[in-house]
Design a protein around this nucleic acid. Structure first.
Lengths: 337, 337
DNA sequence: CCCGAGGCTGGAAGCGCTTCCAGTACCTAC
DNA sequence: GTAGGTACTGGAAGCGCTTCCAGCCTCGGG
């Protein structure tokens, strides 16, 4: 490699020698552990400064059996799932919490076969101290792998099936119910749902919440119009919805992207929003505010989701046994409903 | 920790013993290096399967002096910069390329002081094989740190000041010029720029491109109306622009977020787009398509940016000396101009 | 004045893997 | 029958750090 400075990195031995102490003492001083006299501690500090010494992460990891790394795995069948700004928010939250515990964040997009295989290896190779798992689909092979992992695993959003031992999730059912109730309370009587992928728990739970609310109001639920959480899929779902049931006057979209897509289709179809059709989204990401009209939506605390996942993982790494968390949602009313 | 299986992970020694070979042979077999007879190679493979052996990443890293990790550092003064979907696309691109080289991606948000300090440590602690640096501002302390790093560094987007040795950038000047020329070619004569932060090279370069084009057309450039690449900042910049120079009939926004913000302000001010004011953005992210009207914009190949950064880094790690790259942009015409 | 209790100290044994090198065994060519 | 390969093999020395532990010194109390 085109390196210029052939300057070798200094080692703890050199620090110890320069400070006139043994390596053990130098090590203890560095980690400010007890059993080091004030004088030697200072001598070591001086030597560290003079040499510009920085401990070798790898060597330390080998000796302590701790990598100082937490992995965030985003599953899905296609890397573009990660383009959803949702994940960026999760990362901001997680990153902050990990920073406090001095852990680094490793990001794994387990979208390709290759990617999934590498995650599997990671989970078994002690390459991280723990893992956060997100966006798992039904029968995702990672679920099994996680059970056999050599490290703690926290789920972000429950997968379909039996709830894992440690997870942080959002109250999807409650949020969807609230959104739908709101539509009903504004006099809408033909309320449909554009739901997310039904092979994800979030997709199902939000449809369930919608359905509960519609039934509770004594109305007839629409069948699910399924999208994949992207804007075009929302537009397409809205189009078939409009074709099947032109009388629709309210739409609950399972996320803002699809809500924005629905808005676009409605605009193109000449339907006024909220005049003819009221629309509610889910997430409260930037797109909800940018949409025209701005989208009434269910805000979920996405950064908090990331933060709590990280905190839960940290607790596990520290040998504690935290309890699963369900984060609340809140309806944010804007112009679209 | 609440672990159930006290099953210790098996080591290479155990594999070797079970296979009836020495540890050296087992190691060679594992890495399919030469000098292992067919018979022993198979014996080792069998033992690996029986034990469910997976090599310890850390130990391997210590022995080989390679971590198998590439870091992506996103600078900025506030973690929310990462919320820009731009970075998600970079990550998708980089992740794919790293996957091919079997490197893991470590993501560092160097936004807080703490975060920056950790990045500095990372760069000096041999915690990764190389680093990709993005979103540096003027006089960002990371620039210096990078120069002294113990590993290869690739810049994503040049920082302000002398160009680094290895970088991948997008032709910001050319893209901005093309956008502005397009506005002029549509008959706009009072064309302004809502520019990004002028303490970033991208912000400056795009303003430069705008200015060049306006001057070349024999028109008067507007002073920069500065935003910070977010939607609200674009809306605010548009508002002051409108207040200062109500005669404006064309706007080049330095990214789509700000373009969307401008659109919102114009709508609220009752100006028709593109009738009264034409708007062009930059990036071509989802928001450009969602905006109303859909935003004419300069598409930059963001995933390719990530991919090429990763490839360049891989080349460096492999001891090659790649050359910097400038990626082209392309105008995408939609309804807003 | 002696003894035990602390407080420090540094030698040494790892952590689990790679890799150099000195062999050993077995052939082929002379 | 011997020299000189070729093809493996495994012992041993690391990689740079943490940590156990036996030993030393010092000091106060009896």
């Amino acid at each position: 490699m085109a390196e210029d400075a052939p300057r070798r990195r200094s080692t703890l031995d050199e620090v110890a020698e320069l400070a006139g102490v043994s390596r053990s003492v130098a090590s203890r001083a560095l980690n400010n552990a007890p059993h080091v006299s004030r004088a030697k501690r200072e001598a070591v500090e001086r030597a560290v400064r003079r040499l510009g010494y920085v401990p070798d992460t790898t060597a330390r990891a080998l000796a302590t059996r701790q990598t100082g790394v937490a992995a965030l795995v985003v599953s899905g069948e296609d890397p573009s799932i990660f383009a959803d700004p949702f994940f960026a928010q999760v990362i901001v939250g997680a990153s902050g919490a990990l920073e406090e515990a001095d852990l680094h964040l490793m990001l794994c997009l387990a979208a390709s076969d290759r990617g999934r295989k590498r995650v599997e290896e990671l989970l078994r190779s002690k390459g991280a101290d723990g893992v956060m798992l997100m966006a798992l689909r039904e029968d995702d092979p990672l679920i099994r792998t996680a059970e056999e992992a050599a490290m703690p695993v926290v789920f972000g959003g429950r997968p379909i099936g039996p709830a894992p031992r440690w997870y942080v999730d959002v109250d999807n059912v409650g949020g969807a119910r609230e959104a739908t109730e709101y539509l009903v309370s504004r006099g809408r009587t033909r309320v449909a749902a554009i739901c997310g992928r039904l092979d994800t728990e979030a997709g199902r739970a939000r449809y369930r919440g919608y359905r509960d609310a519609v039934l509770a109001a004594g109305l007839d639920p629409f069948p699910p119009y399924e999208g994949d959480f992207t804007e075009p899929s929302g537009a397409a779902a809205m189009a078939s919805l409009l074709a099947d049931r032109p009388e629709v006057d309210g739409v609950f979209a399972a996320n803002d992207n699809m809500g924005a897509g629905a808005l676009r289709t409605l605009r193109e179809a000449g339907r006024a929003v909220p005049g003819d059709v009221a629309v509610v989204g889910f997430d409260d990401l930037t797109v909800a505010r940018i949409a025209d009209p701005p989208l009434t939506t269910v805000r979920q605390p996405i950064q908090a989701l990331g933060r709590e996942m990280a905190r839960m993982l940290i607790a596990l790494v520290n040998g504690q046994d935290p309890t699963p968390l369900l984060l609340p949602t809140r309806l944010v009313v804007r112009a679209s409903a």
